[in-house]
């Protein structure tokens, strides 16, 4: 099963073509995602450099760089044109380009086959990857416990189950499912 954190680690992976893309749903989520992605970097590293300039991103091959474009389409085209400079010299940490899901940058990428092929498989959309298949999860819960999340949670709140680590974890799943 895929999950967002592992996909981010793969996107930041050491071999890469020097560039990855992170898709976000809206600017509020983007601001959160900047910190979330940065937290995957090695602890000894400097904080990620945040910029809207491709030139500045290229100038710092040893730093994790977050490019948040002012003009997404122009930045994608610029990165496509300059992508070989991201490869040589090889970067130690990649440039992560933040693009709005279904936005102008995503459309521009369709016009830039070179860059698109480099970021292929390395362009996580955190929120989409995190999305659980609720029906599947509910069915699994019921198979495991013989109870619906609601019924199980009622018993849990009544103290009918021991407070073991497994059941504490299960109570989280039940609460999430119950809210559906």
């Amino acid at each position: 099963m895929r999950d967002p954190s592992l996909n981010v680690v793969i996107a930041l992976g050491e071999y890469q073509g020097g560039v990855a893309v992170a898709y976000y749903a809206d600017p509020i989520r983007r601001d959160w995602l900047l910190g979330e992605i940065e937290s995957h970097a090695p602890s000894a590293d400097q904080p990620a450099l945040r910029t809207s300039s491709v030139d500045e991103a290229i100038a710092y091959p040893d730093r994790l760089v977050f490019v948040v474009p002012r003009d997404e389409a122009a930045t994608v085209e610029e990165l496509d044109a300059l992508r070989d400079r991201l490869l040589m010299p090889p970067r130690r940490l990649p440039v992560v380009l933040f693009l709005l899901r279904d936005g102008p940058g995503e459309r521009a990428l369709a016009r830039c086959p070179g860059l698109a092929s480099i970021v292929r498989g390395r362009d996580p959309d955190w929120d989409l990857l995190a999305r659980a298949d609720v029906d599947l999860e509910r069915a699994r819960f019921e198979r495991e416990t013989g109870l619906s999340p609601q019924a199980w949670l009622r018993k849990w709140k009544n103290g009918e189950f021991p407070e073991t680590p497994e059941l504490i974890v299960r109570s989280y799943r039940a609460t999430a499912l119950e809210g559906e």
Partner: peptide, 13 residues
């Protein structure tokens, strides 16, 4: 890469 969420509409576990 292992501290990760599952999203159930408004909740994240």
């Amino acid at each position: 890469g292992r501290f990760t969420p599952r999203r159930f509409r408004e909740f994240e576990a």
